[in-house]
Design a protein around this nucleic acid. Sequence first.
RNA 1: UGGGGCGUCGCCAAGCGGUAAGGCACUGGGUUUUGAUCUCAGCAUACGCAGGUUCGAAUCCUGCCGCCCCAGCCA
Length: 563
Amino acid sequence: MSSEDTTPASNFIRNIIDADLAAGKNQGKVATRFPPEPNGYLHIGHAKSICLNFGIAIDYQGTCNLRFDDTNPHKENIEFVEAIQRDVRWLGYDWGDRLFYASDYFEQLYDYAVQLIKKGKAYVCDLTPEQTREYRGTLTEPGRDSPYRERSVEENLDLFARMRAGEFADGERILRARIDMASPNMNLRDPAIYRIRHGAVHHQTGEAWSIYPMYDFTHCLSDSIEGITHSLCTLEFEDHRPLYDWFLDELEVECHPQQIEFSRLELEYTITSKRKLTQLVDEGHVEDWDDPRMPTIAGMRRRGYPPGAIRDFCERIGVTKSGNNVEMGVLENCVRENLNVHAPRRMAVLHPLKVVITNYPEGQVEELQAANHPQDESMGTRTLPFARELYIEREDFREEAPKKFKRLVTGGEVRLRNAYVIRCDEVIRDSQGEIIELRCSYDPETLSKNPEGRKVKGVIHWVSARHSIVAEVRLYDRLFSHPNPDSAKEGGEFTDYLNPESLLTLTRCRLEPSLADARSGEQIQFEREGYFCVDPDHRHDRPIFNRTVTLRDSWARIEQKNG
RNA sequence: UGGGGCGUCGCCAAGCGGUAAGGCACUGGGUUUUGAUCUCAGCAUACGCAGGUUCGAAUCCUGCCGCCCCAGCCA
């Protein structure tokens, strides 16, 4: 964990823990857990939960378990199990030897279910799924008791054992908790606790089981078995808390963790529904789970977001129970702040425009020195070849300059970053009238000093034509063009809001030669353009850079304001 | 219309009866060979609304209003 992490802000959960500690609860121990279901990749919302759970464990010298909630073999697989571990580790957290699976407890859970039956608190129900729904009632009407609710303990025991033995088909019977069909809380209307699932090969238990426990039953007991003190989950489980407590009370377990709910993260211009993220991948709207536009941890990693920036973000947004919709700018600001300190500076011309320095000797090459970071000398310097033919950014030249434009204009001067001041003398066009070259002259007296008697305000970046490297640069933008893609109109879908310009691939970019030995994963600032990282597909003979985030650009704002 | 939650600046968020922290965004000034960074300053007489209690309320009480979640053999 990097030392620059901000000191953790307090929140209502930490306040509860502080109070518990002060009251001497749990022998002064704090034990949390992060319990993902391996049915998809982790996303920014999970990052919030990971930082919360692992962060608390670190700060309170407690423990945080990584536990896979793997009770639904139809939807889960080992690829996700592995990806999740990779992502949690990359985020900077370590579960040590505390890697668990709910499936580790299947035998124990089965015994707990038998105990419930023996107490008359669970029964085998033969209702079809449709009938079960009818019997459940509605939000405003109470449900009705199942005709199988009064089965004898012996019969229930026998039937449940035969469910396990595989004697019945999927959907034929379930084991239900016997609570209250008239409860105003729907979760307490005799919820299912075991269902039959034949034919699924579970990634951990193989074909050992043909019945699988439900979330509500599994989760509280898994927490209890692991000695969790504070079981943190999102708001939609608030209604499940009475059930969480009911199982633990009825089974008289020694450890009864406290469930505390917080609101899930909503981020503008993104979605965090696993179903929808899966859809984006399956329908090919993005390359894969690690597409740099995805709000997945794998996607953010490939995009170049440093793990420390994500942790910082999770710290800044806080943890509460109120509804929220965080602006993208907060995350981007965290990324910029982190990268500003760590990313060495380089020059890259994304849309090259040729410049010939007419008064610079043909064949001459100078090796200029440039700082790798303007505020951090310890990052050293590199050499920059300067020659007669250069490339500059097309955007940095205008024939007719708008107000406040301080880059290169016809007849005007501009500073080439880390080099000389040049003047544009002539514009060369092709037969279509498009500008293809600028004829300029340089002032040899302006290397690391200001010109005599005049002010040159603008500074632009450049590369030597002959020495530069050709590279592919992928400019990423937000995946959605609507701040709340989930709020699609009637009949619409979130995919209607996909941003058609979320990826712009540039193939003829020119990079300064020092970038030749860039290595996959490296993060660099292309001066005046943004932060970029080297893509995993990058090869020495086929360089690929991804734009992580642009620099703040007040000129763009001025330009917009002036129309 | 049952149950469970939530409502403090554009977006997050402190605050827990003593007179509105902080971050992001935004606005203006300074430094600057990145229109970056950095830096200085400004930015809620106001806490969903209406009453009440109190010397004093964002904080307590009452009543409204708005938004979110719950009727999977998903988690």
